[in-house]
């Protein structure tokens, strides 16, 4: 009898283990072949000589890293960081009030409003970015409208510059900011606003002391979701930025496809990975300390 119970327990445990394994195996296989292995290859390529027609020569070198000291690349790197940062802040300033608005509506309205935020996703990203050309170009919607109102004499230069790229980035990544912010704000207890006001806090103090700290997680999550892909963007600057507004993504693309310099392309990729890793590590450090403090 006792033995049978033991056997039964053993098989139950085994079955649970098996179930867990089945859950993680697909992701593990996927990540190994399409993330770990390619990452390792990028690391390896970055210290090899370039091949004449793309590819690599199997010869160790650090010269690819030395090329990074060229100020030209710093400019592109700086622009990427600056545009991504600006995009993140702009998305936050537009997205936070909107997420707050949606979360404070009656529950039956919230899903409809969220759907409106997500609907643009149903159209191809490329199409949506091309649409901005029609809006921003010299004979575009904005310029025609402004000149027909006699507000301007000459068409404004809205396209193929940092402005156009920023507009495209903010437009493209806004939902990534709104969704995590909404998820945080939806759980926010709005009775706390009454409590704060009751205790003498005006609107600004209520926001700074109560709302902001309690939604910080959503702000950080949304900012990471916008900043990380924005740094590596290459479609938006390629289409809206023209030749002048290169970002890191364009540079990487050029090195692999244009210049056929795979090793230097790998170096640039690694630089981007490091840049993106820094804010994530800071986030986890902060979150960790919060957890320990509580």
């Amino acid at each position: 009898m006792f033995n049978r119970i033991q056997t039964h327990l053993a098989t139950a445990t085994n079955r649970r283990r098996l179930n867990l394994a089945v859950l993680v195996i697909p992701a593990t296989v996927w990540l190994f072949f399409f993330f770990v292995l390619p990452l390792f290859m990028v690391l390896l390529y970055s210290v090899l000589e370039r091949g004449t027609y793309g590819g690599v020569e199997w010869q160790f070198t650090l010269s690819n890293y030395e090329r990074l000291f060229n100020p030209i690349y710093w400019g592109v790197l700086g622009r990427s960081l600056w545009l991504a940062l600006f995009t993140t802040v702009a998305c936050l300033l537009v997205g936070y009030p909107l997420a707050f608005f949606i979360a404070s509506r009656p529950p039956q309205w919230r899903n409809t409003l969220l759907l409106l935020v997500i609907i643009p996703f149903w159209t191809n990203f490329l199409v949506r970015i091309y649409a901005w050309i029609i809006i921003l170009r010299q004979e575009g919607v904005i310029n025609v409208l402004l000149s027909s109102l006699h507000l301007i004499n000459q068409p404004l230069d809205l396209l193929f510059n940092s402005f156009a790229v920023t507009v495209g980035l903010v437009y493209g990544y806004l939902p990534f900011m709104i969704l995590p912010l909404y998820a945080t704000l939806e759980r926010f207890d709005f009775a706390l606003l009454d409590a704060a006001q009751d205790l003498g806090a005006n609107d600004l103090k209520t926001f700074v002391r109560i709302v902001l700290p309690l939604t910080l997680r959503g702000i950080v999550a949304g900012s990471l979701l916008v900043f990380i892909p924005a740094v590596g963007e290459f479609i938006t600057p390629d289409i809206l930025g023209g030749a002048k507004t290169l970002m890191m993504g364009n540079l990487v693309q050029n090195q692999f496809l244009g210049a056929r310099h795979w090793p230097f392309g790998s170096v640039l990729s690694i630089v981007m990975i490091v840049i993106v890793l820094i804010p994530i590590l800071i986030y986890f450090r902060v979150a960790d300390e919060k957890l320990k403090a509580n």
Partner: peptide
Amino acid sequence: PPFHRPVNTVFQNYALFPHLTVAQNVAF
């Protein structure tokens, strides 16, 4: 507005600030 009235409220579900300690809640 509520913050200019000489009254204070004890709320139904307390509405304590979850990110503040007991002392910080009272000090607010």
